[in-house]
Design a protein around this nucleic acid. Structure first.
Lengths: 105, 105
DNA sequence: GCATTAGTTAAGTACATACTTAAGTATTCA
DNA sequence: TGAATACTTAAGTATGTACTTAACTAATGC
């Protein structure tokens, strides 16, 4: 639970970069190799690899290497962490508004 | 729709900083003044004001000034933008897995 | 009116980050 | 075996970012 804070930090930091979100958008359509992933992006392959490392450490992406090709795919668990944090904020928010409504009624 | 991209960029960039998320956690419990918001944080008031400017520009927070006190509260619209982006990723992800399941069945 | 409170704004600094190039390894193919 | 492919890794750079201090404005209280 307290350990979860570090995970939330990593996930939201990873999501903070537009290039990494673009990578996730691509991966939600299906798994692809690193070089295939790099093609539409206007950065070098090396830069893409660095983004992928961060995405993997944050739990947003999983990869596996077969031969010389590394295949990347979305790990739903990472997105779930972010979604949960947002849901938690909205939940306490709505509970508070409900109590406020009760008082007024 | 294409304009929405800039909004998503701003929201996720804002959420990328742990101090700003801490501010949002505080605000989800209810509206507070700037100095009240700053007290538990180990940074100067000036730094808090700078975070608040970013949070307001990104649509995550609304503020209003009465006399010399600025009251800050969460704007649910900002969180909704982030939530929607994540939901969109998971949606395309699940659709793909469904099609895969259909093929196997 | 004067001091205090609450916030603002500007300028500077130190560190983080996204990128590059370049030189490497491991795998596949002819 | 040798060339091409698919990454990998290290090192350097330039820009961003979060923060500070300091000097300011505006509202409130005595």
């Amino acid at each position: 639970m307290a350990d979860n804070k570090a995970k939330i930090d990593r996930v939201f930091h990873a999501l903070g970069d537009p290039t990494r979100r673009q990578i996730l958008e691509r991966l939600s359509a299906g798994p692809v190799s690193v070089s295939h992933l790099a093609t539409p992006l206007k950065i070098t392959l090396a830069a893409v690899v660095q983004h992928l490392q961060l995405l993997e450490e944050s739990g947003l992406v999983r990869t596996e290497k077969l031969g010389r090709v590394r295949t990347c795919r979305i790990d739903p668990a990472g997105l779930a962490v972010a979604q949960q944090w947002i849901a938690d904020r909205r939940s306490t928010l709505e509970k508070r508004l409900d109590r406020l409504g009760d008082l007024l009624a």
